[in-house]
Design a protein around this nucleic acid. Structure first.
Length: 597
RNA sequence: GCCUCGGUAGCUCAGUUGGAUAGAGCAACUGCCUUCUAAGCAGUAGGUCAUGGGUUCGAAUCCCGUCCGGGGUACCA
């Protein structure tokens, strides 16, 4: 049992004994003591005053005395106003360090056969253009979330649904037919997804030109948008595709193939992967039977024109169309079918969708509809909703070319990392290959940490000139600290030092040592919180706190230069524990740690 | 209009199950490398936590109003 729960129980019992009132364990506020005060854990006693009928100070003193008597771990206490500051004895902290040092998986919950299986959908790209910074946020959040869930003892199926069909794909296809001159990724040397994206942009330019021309001839903008020759041609391609026209399907397959090759490269570079990939071309007809079943059961209703609707006004929402008057499906219909298929495919207990917050309404409705259709898991669908990435120039738009391309960004960052590294001259002993690997690690660390440290729900600002930093609250700062520790550990090994878990329980601890140890002690709770809150940001900010704490300790105290062997061993064990935690914590963010930098 | 999310230092962000004097980083200024990696450490300066009320012993945090911003509200996906 950890110290917090132990204290909560004792405090509850103590309050009953002293004041005749037994508070609920959950309503006891036990928090980390602020650094400017003496103590480790603090109990806010104001809530007890009502029952103790004494001043806050007196109440705190009574409780403090009780705890010192009853709980061996509580060494002493002090009272400031209504705050009872408890000092936990050194032996407790030493034991905690031993656990963090000896247990590779300190703070993690084991995944077993009995673990809950969760499916996480993320990425979900369209196959008509390359990935940009917005997709990067999605991919990093999705991947990180999976790692965090695993750390919390869940089994995870990472899945991706590729939006590989529809009018947007046909636009690129039409443009390639018109102006492609048979170009391929091989013939041009252009990455497949970029090549296809270029044709998508080409289409849009032509389309706009045609609209302008038609409007000049007197059409309304809406008429022009619907009657421009290029959009008619794209629609015709979509019709042929749906009719399984051989030539059209062949073209579609070829161009999608190019895109997949490109995506695979980008995913690999980003370090994300999937266990199962769904394709919209194979799922877009699903869901219709479900809707018809709901119609028969009276859950949905049909309008005069034949369209099928759900009435959600009782839930405070609107009417939602589920089948068009011509009987065809809409997005929502598909998602109903896809969700059902997934629960049929896998014994999952939960489905998480990593999708931008512009879809909040959609997923709210989806959960309600599935619940109405009688699926007990319907209400349990979780929309992991995240905000968009904004640029100083405003929103990113693929068609207008105002995007930060994922591939370009990673290359640029690597160059910056290399330039910086070479200036500092830290990697001189390494081979070119090793150095390149390290620069890549640093560049990716900077990007991933930058994206993941902010609260996923919020929109975030990305300024290409200023955002990517390698100092301060950044990924490289954490990576650097890791490399620094590894350097110390290497030197320790060179001089034949064995690091041992046998640490005298009465060892005198320096302030910085204890602060660091306290931060280490928080890791299990942080893992849990990140899992409960679905928040990589919680983990990212913790890792930063931890290395900040370590650097202060490192600055103030020599490790290898310490002459007291127990003290030196203790400091080495601290260092090893920090490495352990960083490996897992940063691993949950998909960030690798270099041995030197 | 309605729904929803947000507004914290010049900038980018933490802190929000109510707790002590609101924290980091960047940018600016000042110190610290003959000693384990200075991508570090220490310090100075920078705040009416959008705003007005309310609840409370106590509010950045909870409630109500107002202002500003994002998103949604299609027989698009």
């Amino acid at each position: 049992m950890n110290i917090e729960s132990l204290l909560q129980e004792k405090i509850s019992a103590g309050a009953e004994l002293l004041f005749g009132y037994k508070p609920e364990i959950t309503q006891l506020q036990l928090q980390q003591t602020r650094k400017e005060f003496e103590g480790d854990l603090t109990l806010v006693v104001f809530p007890f005053v009502r029952f103790s009928k004494k001043s806050p100070e007196e109440t705190a003193v009574q409780l403090g005395n009780y705890l010192v008597e009853q709980v061996p771990e509580v060494e002493k206490f002090n009272v400031v106003k209504g705050f009872l500051n408890l000092t936990i004895g050194t032996s407790y902290w030493i034991a905690l360090l031993q656990e963090a040092f000896r247990n590779e998986n300190y703070g993690l919950k084991p995944v077993t056969d009995a673990s809950e299986l969760v499916m996480v959908e993320y990425s979900s790209p369209n196959t008509n253009k390359p990935l940009h910074l917005g997709h990067i946020r999605n991919n990093l959040l999705g991947y990180s979330l999976c790692r965090i869930l695993e750390a919390n003892g869940k089994k995870v199926v990472k899945t991706n649904i590729v939006n590989d069909r529809g009018i947007h794909i046909c636009k690129s296809m039409y443009a390639w037919q018109q102006w492609g001159e048979g170009k391929t990724p091989q013939s041009t040397g252009i990455k497949g997804d970029h090549l296809v994206g270029d044709f998508y942009v080409m289409f849009d330019q032509q389309y706009k030109k045609e609209i302008a021309g038609l409007v000049a001839q007197g059409m309304t903008p809406e008429e022009a948008e619907n009657q421009a020759p290029s959009i008619l041609a794209a629609r015709e391609l979509l019709r042929k595709w749906e009719a399984h026209d051989e030539e059209t399907v062949g073209l579609w397959k070829m161009m999608n193939g190019w895109v997949y090759e490109g995506f695979d490269q980008t995913y690999k570079e980003l370090g994300v992967d999937f266990d199962k990939i769904y394709y919209e071309s194979e799922t877009y007809l699903l869901g219709k039977e479900e809707v018809l079943r709901g119609l028969e059961a009276g859950i949905f209703y049909r309008r005069e024109d034949g369209s099928v609707w759900a009435d959600l006004t009782a839930e405070g929402l609107d009417q939602k169309v589920l089948l068009r008057s011509d009987g065809t499906s809409v997005y929502m219909t598909q998602d109903i079918g896809t969700a059902k298929m997934r629960f049929d495919d896998y014994p999952i207990s939960k489905m998480v969708y990593v999708v931008g917050n512009e879809q909040n309404y959609h997923f709210q409705v989806l959960a309600i509809l599935l619940d109405k259709l009688g699926y007990e898991w319907g209400k349990g669908l979780y929309h992991f909703s995240y905000g968009m990435v904004e640029l100083p120039s405003g929103k990113m738009k693929s068609r207008e070319g105002t995007v930060v391309d994922a591939d370009d960004l990673m290359v640029e960052m690597e160059e910056v990392a290399r330039k910086m590294g070479e200036e500092l001259g830290k990697l001189q002993g390494l081979s070119e290959e090793e150095a390149a690997r390290t620069y890549k690690m640093i560049a990716h660390g900077a990007l991933k940490y930058f994206i993941l440290k902010v609260d996923p729900r919020k929109n975030m600002m990305f300024n290409p000139e200023e955002s990517i930093d390698f100092n301060g609250n950044t990924g490289p700062f954490i990576q650097y600290t890791h490399a620094r520790i590894q350097s110390v550990l290497r030197k320790a090994a060179e001089s034949g030092l064995e690091i041992s878990g046998a640490i005298p329980p009465a060892l005198q601890l320096e302030t910085k040592e204890k602060e660091l140890l306290k931060t280490i002690s928080l890791f299990p709770a942080v893992v849990e919180e990140a899992g409960n809150a679905y928040s990589p940001a919680v983990m990212a900010n913790y890792c930063y706190e931890l290395v900040k704490e370590y650097n202060q300790f490192y600055h103030d105290h020599s490790i290898l230069g310490e002459t007291n062997a127990d003290q030196r061993n203790f400091r080495l064990a601290l260092s090893v524990s920090v490495v352990n935690i960083l490996k897992h914590g940063m691993g949950m963010l998909g960030i690798e740690l270099p041995e030197r930098m």
